Computed example of a mutant assay.
Amino acid sequence: MHWATGLLLFLATVIGMEGFAYVAHRWVMHGVGWFLHASHHRPRHGNWEWNDLYAVIFAVPSFALIFGGLQLGWWPGFVWIGYGIAAYGAIYFGFHDVIVHKRLNHRYLPKSAYMKRIIQAHRLHHVVETKRGTVSFGFLWAPKPEDLKAELKRRDRAGVRAPVERSETPAA
Protein backbone atom coordinates (compact mmCIF):
# COMPACT_ATOMS: atom_id res chain seq x y z
CA MET A 1 0.00 0.00 0.00
CA HIS A 2 1.30 3.44 -0.90
CA TRP A 3 2.19 5.54 2.15
CA ALA A 4 -0.11 8.39 1.02
CA THR A 5 -3.10 6.03 0.95
CA GLY A 6 -2.11 4.77 4.38
CA LEU A 7 -1.79 8.29 5.71
CA LEU A 8 -5.27 9.13 4.40
CA LEU A 9 -6.64 6.01 6.14
CA PHE A 10 -4.85 7.02 9.32
CA LEU A 11 -6.26 10.58 9.27
CA ALA A 12 -9.76 9.40 8.37
CA THR A 13 -9.61 6.96 11.28
CA VAL A 14 -8.50 9.63 13.77
CA ILE A 15 -11.35 11.89 12.61
CA GLY A 16 -13.85 9.02 12.53
CA MET A 17 -12.89 8.01 16.06
CA GLU A 18 -14.41 11.23 17.38
CA GLY A 19 -17.78 10.08 16.02
CA PHE A 20 -17.24 6.60 17.45
CA ALA A 21 -16.20 8.08 20.81
CA TYR A 22 -19.32 10.28 20.90
CA VAL A 23 -21.59 7.30 20.26
CA ALA A 24 -19.74 5.07 22.74
CA HIS A 25 -19.76 7.78 25.40
CA ARG A 26 -23.39 8.74 24.99
CA TRP A 27 -25.06 5.37 24.50
CA VAL A 28 -22.63 2.83 25.97
CA MET A 29 -20.82 4.61 28.81
CA HIS A 30 -23.97 6.48 29.82
CA GLY A 31 -26.04 3.39 29.04
CA VAL A 32 -25.27 -0.27 29.62
CA GLY A 33 -21.62 0.52 30.45
CA TRP A 34 -22.48 2.96 33.24
CA PHE A 35 -21.32 0.40 35.82
CA LEU A 36 -17.74 1.23 34.73
CA HIS A 37 -18.17 4.87 33.70
CA ALA A 38 -19.94 5.96 36.91
CA SER A 39 -16.57 5.96 38.66
CA HIS A 40 -15.51 8.79 36.34
CA HIS A 41 -18.39 11.00 37.48
CA ARG A 42 -17.46 10.65 41.15
CA PRO A 43 -14.40 11.96 42.97
CA ARG A 44 -11.45 9.66 42.31
CA HIS A 45 -9.56 8.13 45.19
CA GLY A 46 -6.16 6.92 44.10
CA ASN A 47 -4.63 6.72 40.64
CA TRP A 48 -7.19 4.45 38.97
CA GLU A 49 -10.93 4.22 38.45
CA TRP A 50 -13.12 1.52 36.92
CA ASN A 51 -13.65 3.77 33.89
CA ASP A 52 -9.98 3.26 32.97
CA LEU A 53 -10.90 -0.21 31.73
CA TYR A 54 -12.42 1.50 28.68
CA ALA A 55 -8.87 2.38 27.56
CA VAL A 56 -8.01 -1.31 27.59
CA ILE A 57 -11.26 -2.26 25.85
CA PHE A 58 -10.73 0.31 23.07
CA ALA A 59 -7.04 -0.64 22.66
CA VAL A 60 -7.93 -4.24 21.71
CA PRO A 61 -9.19 -3.44 18.16
CA SER A 62 -6.18 -1.19 17.57
CA PHE A 63 -3.76 -3.89 18.66
CA ALA A 64 -5.60 -6.58 16.69
CA LEU A 65 -5.60 -4.52 13.47
CA ILE A 66 -1.92 -3.61 13.76
CA PHE A 67 -0.91 -7.16 14.64
CA GLY A 68 -3.07 -8.68 11.92
CA GLY A 69 -1.78 -6.28 9.30
CA LEU A 70 1.87 -6.69 10.24
CA GLN A 71 2.06 -10.35 11.28
CA LEU A 72 -0.91 -12.25 9.91
CA GLY A 73 -0.99 -11.04 6.33
CA TRP A 74 -4.22 -9.08 6.62
CA TRP A 75 -4.90 -6.12 4.33
CA PRO A 76 -2.13 -3.51 4.95
CA GLY A 77 -4.73 -0.78 5.44
CA PHE A 78 -5.64 -2.36 8.76
CA VAL A 79 -2.25 -1.32 10.12
CA TRP A 80 -2.95 2.32 9.31
CA ILE A 81 -6.45 2.08 10.79
CA GLY A 82 -5.01 0.50 13.94
CA TYR A 83 -2.46 3.32 14.16
CA GLY A 84 -5.30 5.85 13.77
CA ILE A 85 -7.23 4.28 16.65
CA ALA A 86 -4.06 4.30 18.77
CA ALA A 87 -3.35 7.95 17.86
CA TYR A 88 -6.87 8.96 18.86
CA GLY A 89 -6.35 7.14 22.16
CA ALA A 90 -3.12 9.06 22.75
CA ILE A 91 -4.80 12.38 21.89
CA TYR A 92 -7.71 11.47 24.17
CA PHE A 93 -5.34 10.60 27.03
CA GLY A 94 -3.40 13.84 26.61
CA PHE A 95 -6.48 16.01 26.44
CA HIS A 96 -8.91 14.24 28.74
CA ASP A 97 -6.76 12.64 31.40
CA VAL A 98 -3.81 15.03 31.48
CA ILE A 99 -5.19 18.47 30.58
CA VAL A 100 -8.81 18.30 31.79
CA HIS A 101 -8.62 15.91 34.75
CA LYS A 102 -4.98 16.62 35.64
CA ARG A 103 -4.09 13.01 36.30
CA LEU A 104 -0.49 14.04 35.69
CA ASN A 105 0.84 17.21 37.30
CA HIS A 106 1.25 20.14 34.91
CA ARG A 107 0.99 23.90 34.75
CA TYR A 108 -0.69 24.15 31.37
CA LEU A 109 -3.22 26.97 31.11
CA PRO A 110 -5.35 27.00 27.97
CA LYS A 111 -4.94 30.15 25.90
CA SER A 112 -6.70 29.32 22.64
CA ALA A 113 -10.45 29.74 22.30
CA TYR A 114 -10.66 26.10 21.13
CA MET A 115 -8.96 24.67 24.22
CA LYS A 116 -10.98 26.87 26.58
CA ARG A 117 -14.21 25.79 24.86
CA ILE A 118 -13.47 22.06 24.88
CA ILE A 119 -12.32 22.08 28.51
CA GLN A 120 -15.38 24.04 29.64
CA ALA A 121 -17.68 21.73 27.68
CA HIS A 122 -16.13 18.70 29.35
CA ARG A 123 -16.46 20.26 32.78
CA LEU A 124 -20.12 20.98 32.04
CA HIS A 125 -20.48 17.30 31.15
CA HIS A 126 -19.19 16.46 34.62
CA VAL A 127 -21.55 18.72 36.58
CA VAL A 128 -24.11 15.96 36.11
CA GLU A 129 -23.26 12.96 38.25
CA THR A 130 -26.05 10.68 37.08
CA LYS A 131 -26.34 8.32 34.13
CA ARG A 132 -28.79 10.60 32.32
CA GLY A 133 -29.21 14.31 31.85
CA THR A 134 -25.68 15.32 31.00
CA VAL A 135 -24.48 17.25 27.95
CA SER A 136 -21.46 17.23 25.64
CA PHE A 137 -20.30 13.71 24.83
CA GLY A 138 -17.53 14.50 22.36
CA PHE A 139 -13.89 14.76 23.34
CA LEU A 140 -12.29 16.88 20.63
CA TRP A 141 -15.37 18.76 19.48
CA ALA A 142 -18.07 20.29 21.65
CA PRO A 143 -20.98 22.70 21.33
CA LYS A 144 -20.62 26.22 22.68
CA PRO A 145 -20.64 26.32 26.51
CA GLU A 146 -23.55 28.80 26.41
CA ASP A 147 -25.63 26.23 24.52
CA LEU A 148 -24.68 23.50 27.00
CA LYS A 149 -25.57 25.70 29.99
CA ALA A 150 -28.92 26.52 28.38
CA GLU A 151 -29.59 22.81 27.83
CA LEU A 152 -28.77 22.01 31.48
CA LYS A 153 -31.10 24.81 32.57
CA ARG A 154 -33.84 23.54 30.22
CA ARG A 155 -33.55 20.15 31.89
CA ASP A 156 -34.10 21.89 35.23
CA ARG A 157 -30.55 20.92 36.22
CA ALA A 158 -31.62 17.29 36.79
CA GLY A 159 -28.74 15.24 38.19
CA VAL A 160 -26.47 18.26 38.65
CA ARG A 161 -23.93 17.73 41.41
CA ALA A 162 -24.54 19.63 44.64
CA PRO A 163 -21.97 22.34 45.40
CA VAL A 164 -18.97 21.14 47.38
CA GLU A 165 -19.01 22.39 50.98
CA ARG A 166 -16.02 24.61 51.71
CA SER A 167 -14.66 25.23 55.17
CA GLU A 168 -15.17 28.80 56.36
CA THR A 169 -12.32 28.62 58.87
CA PRO A 170 -9.20 30.38 57.62
CA ALA A 171 -6.00 28.39 57.37
CA ALA A 172 -3.57 29.01 60.20
Rank of each mutant, 00 (worst) to 15 (best):
R107N: 15
R107D: 09
V127S: 07
I66A: 05
F78A: 04
I91G: 09
L109Q: 15
G89W: 11
G73R: 14
K102M: 11
S112Q: 10
G77Y: 01
V56I: 09
P76E: 06
V127P: 03
F58L: 12
L70F: 11
F63K: 10
V56Y: 12
I119A: 08
F58I: 12
A86G: 14
H122I: 04
H101E: 04
F63A: 12
W74I: 09
S112C: 05
V100I: 10
H125V: 06
I118C: 00
E129M: 14
H125T: 05
E129R: 14
G77H: 07
R107H: 15
E129K: 13
I91R: 11
V60D: 06
G84S: 07
G94N: 10
R123C: 07
I57V: 13
L72M: 14
I119L: 09
E129H: 15
H106I: 00
V60N: 04
K102Q: 15
R117C: 10
Y83K: 14
H96C: 03
V60T: 08
P110D: 05
P61S: 06
G77F: 03
P110L: 07
Y92K: 03
H101T: 02
L104V: 14
W74N: 06
G77A: 05
H126A: 01
V98S: 10
F95Q: 14
I91L: 15
H122R: 08
L70Q: 03
V56L: 11
H101R: 10
G82N: 05
H126F: 05
Q71M: 07
H101F: 11
V127D: 00
Y92E: 06
A64W: 14
L72N: 14
V56F: 10
F95P: 11
G68W: 09
V60F: 13
G69Q: 04
E129A: 09
W75Q: 04
F63I: 14
F78W: 05
R123Q: 13
I118W: 08
A59H: 03
F95Y: 13
W80M: 06
P76F: 02
Y114V: 12
A59W: 10
V100R: 06
K102C: 14
F78R: 12
I66F: 09
V100L: 06
Y88D: 02
F93Y: 15
G77P: 01
L65K: 05
I91H: 15
M115Q: 12
H122Y: 13
F78G: 05
F63S: 09
N105R: 14
Y108H: 15
P76H: 13
L124R: 10
P61Q: 03
F67N: 03
A55V: 02
G82S: 04
V127W: 05
G94R: 07
L65Q: 01
A86N: 08
F58E: 04
P61E: 02
F93E: 02
H126S: 00
V56W: 07
F78V: 01
A55H: 13
H101C: 03
H101G: 02
